[in-house]
Nucleic acid binder design. Structure first.
Lengths: 160, 160
DNA sequence: TCGTTAGATTACCGACGGATCCTCATTGAT
DNA sequence: ATCAATGAGGATCCGTCGGTAATCTAACGA
């Protein structure tokens, strides 16, 4: 019932491979090969992210996918929301249809606070935060796809 | 990927209808009628809870279901674990098979702490806590099923 | 012992998410 | 204008989960 499906994990892995807005597009196929995410599935996933305004995809020669906004402005919550939606935030923990703010169930307040804590956590991590970690695999991939100017920027931050 | 499925909600609603250990058994059918949970499905659910040692079920005349331990010792975590298992606690957020304590992924620590926070919350609520709330519906149900001695005990506590 | 009461067990169905394959549509280079 | 590159989209498969129904079996009372 809570968010963060397997597909959200895919989204995380895929987004790490993309360039900042205005950068060079990366092929869905390259990302699929590198991450091991099924190509066709990743294609649909990317489309979903595009509809939510998180990435921009262009078809044809020299097409590919780029971030639609700076990685520092893309949170884990954004991804979760794009993939899994927000329905889970509204569902009653006990599954009672009549549970509302006015007619709360026994666990209403408890659950509301729990969800709030989770949301705060999801908002506290951005793609840029993730890039600050050493990750030889991703750095190799980036080097192969035109990420030549990012290495320095990553050194100016502490780990998440 | 996270726990707390619809079925866990069912378990919560069902357990609230049961007596403390040694008390009078309540019929699966009664609970189903009152909660609206499908009878057959609830039967399987109860069996699962019985295998985990949370309830005791007896067949035949004057059979039914009772809590297997005091409601104050049954946490939301117990229910979640009985129904949804614990696999979700071990899964990597990014879905990386090779992510371990020794070879952690970029989000490993972040996710570990998040899960810890959630677990603490799940452990902080017991069935007894839930009973402390006013709930005319459940109290009516209890009155109809031999819960004559519990009303006083419930008055000695603050809400959750 | 026999029958009734109740939970246990089995088989099965439908919906949904993850996943795959194949084809369509768009873009840019020539 | 044409062709190849590349994302978009439809059809379909598979496994899991919620849900139903029919049957089996243990416990008790008459």
């Amino acid at each position: 019932m809570l968010p963060l499906s397997q597909t959200t994990g895919y989204a995380l892995r895929a987004m790490r491979c993309l360039q900042e807005p205005g950068g060079q597009p990366v092929l869905v196929e390259s990302v699929a090969d590198y991450t091991g995410i099924p190509r066709s599935y990743l294609s649909k996933l990317v489309h979903k992210l595009a509809k939510k305004g998180l990435v921009t995809a262009r078809r044809g020669h020299h097409g590919g996918v780029v971030l639609a906004k700076p990685s520092a402005e893309i949170t884990l919550e954004d991804l979760s929301e794009a993939i899994d939606g927000v329905a889970w935030r509204k569902r009653c923990l006990m599954g009672l249809a009549g549970c509302t703010e006015e007619t709360p169930c026994v666990l209403h307040e408890y659950w509301k606070q729990t969800l709030q804590e989770i949301l705060v956590r999801l908002r506290s991590v951005t793609l840029a935060d993730m890039a600050r970690h050493q990750d030889p695999g991703v750095e190799r991939f980036r080097a192969d796809h035109g990420f030549l100017a990012t290495a320095e920027a990553e050194r100016n931050h502490a780990p998440v």
